[in-house]
Every structure is written in structure tokens, then in C-alpha cells.
Design a protein around this nucleic acid. Structure first.
Lengths: 188, 188
DNA sequence: GTGTTCATGTAACACGTTACATGATTGT
DNA sequence: ACAATCATGTAACGTGTTACATGAACAC
């Protein structure tokens, strides 16, 4: 298998400290879960690939027999591969937002249900916002302000702003929906 | 082939008027291109599938011989399928933002290059914003305020807010990067 | 000893993009 | 006549998710 974008957060996490696949995933969820996700079906095959490519290696320990916990360590080659990837222009695949698509085509469906979709999305955004703010507070209370937390805070800030923007939009949109039959500038 | 999420914008566009595949794609780009995209490799096979499933049908015209332009029309079954889909909860696949990932792991790479990535993304957002605002103006000048333009405007508004939020974040982030060596609260 | 969480891995599938091949239509 | 754009389609590939199977370690 080849190196996919999925390998980058793996390499990145391993610059923090040696970790096992399971651990890597937890760290991903807890820090960049905001804007990135990895499934096990992606992580484990990639760990093998990265290993074979010499970008990471298994930390020698007691095990190695069959499938017990394996701890991986990043190699110098791996660090360089990560640096190279960071230098390359980010490619982002085209967006696909089902909620907005449903809003857009709301006239063809049940408006009440579209409204409910927005309400639910709003609730989720509120929950997300709270989580982000909690993490932000935690990061701020760290006495040592090293790079890691600095850039982490930057990505968090966008998450927070996005959530706030979205919540505000939901409120506006919900108000529009309420005006449904009030607003009588009828069509054509 | 089965019905994929890709079929929904196709059905949606066909509620506007009968169209050919090529046309559908243009309309998608020009209206929901903001938050959705379709490639031809997706559209043409789906048109066949939708046709076979009876959700759309070819408008009888001169052609039908081989591959010349085919115009499709949505059927009642198709409208119902669209309604049903709108009613279902939107599922959004996990986000993946390479720019943020690069920002997050900036300490492991070349900061200057990450800065450049942000600058470029900012420029693109500014361009996007202008496009959205132009479309918004156009929509507002329409004398008839029917549902279509109303919901369209709603989705546009989120695009605009998102772009503005993102641009503001870029500015903040770029300022942070400038403080790189000015800010002397050193690490650990 | 039983349930939960930790831990690894595979196989089947879904979905979407890219690149390619082909030809019709229209403008100059 | 030539180029550009309109127009349709297929095949190969990349990438990711889900579901499944399996077992170790730990808490109670």
C-alpha cells in the first residue's frame, strides 16, 4: 500500500512520543478530532506500510509475538517525510454538506423537517463549542507555553469561530423558517 | 449501481427544469458549488441508474440514437424520493482539513511555508467571498422573491459568514506567525 | 468469573476522482 | 478549416468506512 494523507497525522502524533495504534487514534480524537479523523481500518494498515517504508519502527519490548500491543517510534526518515509533507501545498477535496443541500432544496420537501435538521445541527454545534472552549481553557492554564500548545490553540480558535458562526447562522435560518407563512411576498 | 448521495442534487436540479447531464453539472457549480460538487464520472452513471429506477426519464426528442444530448425530466417517483431524502437526517462524513493539520504540526516543519499556505488560503477565501457577495446581490435584485431564491440566499449567507470567519482567522494566525521570534516566553 | 476497555487486524464495500476516448455543435 | 466548448460515457484507481473476528488486561 502507498502512503496516503492518513499517514501524516500518524507521523505527527509519533513526534510527540512513541505510541501504539490504539493510542494514536485516541490522541487524534482528543486534539485534532476537530478537523481530522482516522478509523482503525486506516490506521493499522498504514502503520504496517510506514514501518515497511522505514518511517517508523516498532520499539523493541517484551512482546513481538503475534498480535499484542506494539509501540511505534518515528525515525529520522519519518520526521523528514512529515516535514516534506508540511511543505507541500494542502489539497482539500471538494466539500459536501448534506444539511445545506437539504436547506437548498427545502421547497421540494417538508420544511418542518428541514427546520428540525437545523435545530439538531445547532445543538451539536453548541456542544462542540463547549468542548472546544474547555480544551482552550486547559491549554491556557498550562504554565509552559511551548510551540505545541501554541499551534494547537490556533486550530482550536478556528473551531470555536466556526461553531459560533454556524450557531448564529442556524438562529437566523430558524427565524426565516418561522416567518414562513407570516411573510407574504408571494412568488411569481 | 445503487442510489448514492450524488443523486440528490441531480434530482434537485431537475425539479427546476429538464436538463442534460452537462447542464446539471453547470447548475450545481453555479448555485451549490459553494458546499457541494459533482464530477461527470459520478453524474453520468447516476443518470442511468436514476433512469432505470424510474426516478427520472429521458425527454423524448429528436435524438435517442447513440450518444448525443439527452435531456432528463424528473418523475413523480423522483420527486417523492427527493422528499424522502430531505426528511432523513443529514449524515456528514468526518472532516479532513489539510491546512489545519499542517498548522497543527507546524513545529515539525518549516513555519515559513505553513505561513505561505495560510496566505494562499486567505486569498482564495477572499475571492470566494467576492463571488458569493456578487451572487447575493444578483439574488436580491430579483423582483420575485420565491422560495427558491430564499433558501438559496440562506445557504449563501453561511458561505459568506464562513469565508469572513476564515479570513479573520487567517489574519490572526498570520500575526501569530509574525510574533514567532518577538514573543520570548520560551518553552519548557 | 464476568464485563469493560484496550488492542490488533482483515475483508467487503461504498464512494468519488482522474484520465481517457469519442464525437457533436458552434463561432470565426 | 479550425478551435473551443458542449456533451456523453467508461475504466482504473485511491481512499476511506463498516463490520467482523480475535484476544489481552484490568476492575469489581
Amino acid at each position: 500500500m502507498a502512503l496516503t494523507p492518513s499517514s501524516m497525522p500518524i507521523l505527527g502524533m509519533l513526534t510527540w512520543r512513541p505510541m501504539a495504534g490504539y493510542e494514536i487514534r485516541q490522541e487524534i480524537q482528543g486534539s485534532i478530532g476537530n478537523f481530522w479523523s482516522e478509523s482503525f481500518g486506516q490506521i493499522y494498515p498504514q502503520l504496517r506500510t510506514l514501518s515497511e517504508a522505514g518511517l517508523i519502527k516498532i520499539l523493541p519490548g517484551k512482546q513481538s509475538t503475534g498480535q499484542s500491543k506494539k509501540t511505534y517510534e518515528i525515525t529520522d526518515t519519518g520526521r523528514q517525510a512529515l516535514r516534506d509533507w508540511i511543505a507541500r501545498e494542502p489539497v482539500n477535496r471538494p466539500p459536501r454538506d448534506e444539511l445545506l443541500l437539504k436547506v437548498f432544496f427545502a421547497p421540494e420537501g417538508d420544511r418542518q423537517q428541514v427546520r428540525d435538521h437545523i435545530k439538531k445541527a445547532r445543538d451539536e454545534a453548541v456542544a462542540r463549542l463547549r468542548t472546544f472552549q474547555a480544551i482552550e481553557t486547559q491549554l491556557q492554564t498550562l504554565t509552559t507555553h511551548h510551540d505545541k500548545s501554541r499551534f494547537w490553540r490556533m486550530t482550536l480558535k478556528l473551531g470555536i469561530s466556526d461553531a459560533q458562526t454556524f450557531i448564529a447562522w442556524c438562529d437566523e435560518a430558524l427565524a426565516e423558517f418561522r416567518n414562513e407563512n407570516t411573510d407574504e411576498e408571494t412568488e411569481k
